[in-house]
């Protein structure tokens, strides 16, 4: 089976201004993203999320390892027919109107002029920019830029969408709209890789997440598994052995009760994982200072 995205022990170093020193932004990272899932990439600022995404688009070159999209090397330009990309904090030609921009990108993908215009109208409507589509992008607000970026990523109906913070800067209602747009895309059979700091949104949206820290993979898996709280699981069967527990469950059900394994929130998990790391690092730093 070919994965939509495959990252095989990828390392990315950036040279630092200090000679000979390097900054390791991604550290032997391996990930597989199956098709038709919504995959979340999480982690604190500077943990290498955007770098990973740029490696996937061939905008950066891996120091070690390799990235594949639909089983093909990311340095082959033709694979990008199947990929839509929204960069973080996107910025586009100030002098173009929203519709001109989307038409331009559509035509770059070989779509004929008339078809490109129809697609652009449709996409701008879908991202809620139909009123502003004839305004210059220079006048757009942050959230509007984000929306036009999303429209641009959807041009040509790609099967894989790579969205770097798609909801950042968008108002709450807009965020809900974009989330439902992403869900809709999944229903159409597309694969979506996104990163975001808005954990409640991610939790509601993603099927699977990876949490990065300093370029390393901290945790990875389907949300259902990651968020099952060990603590609360034992709590619910306190003082009962397995048999009793089963009987208990059966009884509960027969009594009309509902039994479910309780989950912690993604935010809790994230704070547990990252917070612990950062606390440790801080302590170590304090120790070495003394």
């Amino acid at each position: 089976m070919t994965y939509a995205i495959e990252i095989e022990s990828v390392t990315k170093d950036f040279p630092l201004p200090v000679r000979g020193r390097k900054l390791r932004a991604v550290d032997s990272l391996s990930l597989q993203v199956e098709s038709n899932v919504i995959y979340g990439l999480l982690g604190p600022n500077g943990s290498g999320k955007s770098t990973t995404i740029k490696l996937l688009l061939g905008l950066l070159k891996t120091t070690e390892g390799r990235c594949l999209i639909n089983g093909k090397s990311v340095y082959e330009p033709s694979i990008r027919n199947e990929v839509g990309y929204l960069p973080e904090a996107p910025y586009y030609y100030r002098f173009l109107t929203g519709i001109e921009l989307v038409v331009y990108f559509a035509r770059l993908q070989g779509i004929k002029k008339r078809e490109a215009l129809a697609q652009a109208e449709n996409l701008l409507f879908r991202v809620g920019l139909e009123d502003a589509k004839d305004n210059r992008i220079g006048t757009y607000s942050k959230g509007m830029l984000q929306r036009v970026g999303l429209a641009q990523a959807l041009v040509g109906d790609p099967s894989l969408l790579i969205l770097d913070e798609p909801i950042a800067g968008v108002d709450p209602i807009g965020a809900v709209d974009i989330a439902s747009l992403i869900r809709e895309l999944k229903e159409q059979g597309k694969t979506i890789l996104l990163c975001s700091h808005l954990l409640s949104q991610v939790e509601a949206l993603c099927d699977r997440v990876a949490i990065l820290e300093s370029g390393r993979l901290l945790a990875e898996g389907p949300l259902d598994k990651l968020l099952v709280s060990e603590e609360e699981k034992t709590l619910s069967i306190k003082n009962l052995d397995t048999e009793d527990r089963e009987r208990m469950v059966k009884t509960a059900i027969s009594l009309g009760g509902q039994v479910s394994v309780s989950r912690i929130s993604l935010e809790t998990l994230y704070l547990q994982l990252i917070g612990e790391k950062q606390r440790k690092a801080k302590l170590e730093r304090e120790d070495s200072d003394q």
């Binding site: 688009l57 905008l59 586009y92």
Partner: peptide, 14 residues
């Protein structure tokens, strides 16, 4: 500099 090039170079082109 304005990072507009990011989007363009992520399109299928040489």
């Amino acid at each position: 500099e304005h990072r507009t090039a990011l989007t363009i170079l992520a399109k299928p082109l040489y």
